[in-house]
Amino acid sequence: MLHVKEKRLDAHNSGEFKNRITRLIEEGNINLIIDLGDVSFIDSSGLGALLSGYKNVNSHQGSLILSSLQSQVQSLFELTRLHRVFTIYPSLEEAMSNT
């Protein structure tokens, strides 16, 4: 489980975030839950980092699940149709009990 403690996921920190996901996968964690409950803002590069992680775990037959999206962040997933790509749970508890 990866809890993102940043309020903003943008082009300033998305590269580091992407690297963190890559390292987790390389260490054998191919079934990831990423909790975005603290993230009130995300931009195109933040979404790109998540999509990169999703494609990476898929290539290892793993899964990447998201939880606790704030309403504006959820709206952005819907605008880009990424809510159809990711499995998203309203809370971390629900994400953990369904995996």
Binding site: D43, S44, G48, L51, T80, R81, L82
Partner: peptide
């Protein structure tokens, strides 16, 4: 192409 998402190319779209 939102049906085939890629890691980049959303900035101007937003």
């Amino acid at each position: 192409d939102l049906n085939h998402p890629t890691e980049g190319g959303l900035g101007i779209f937003f």
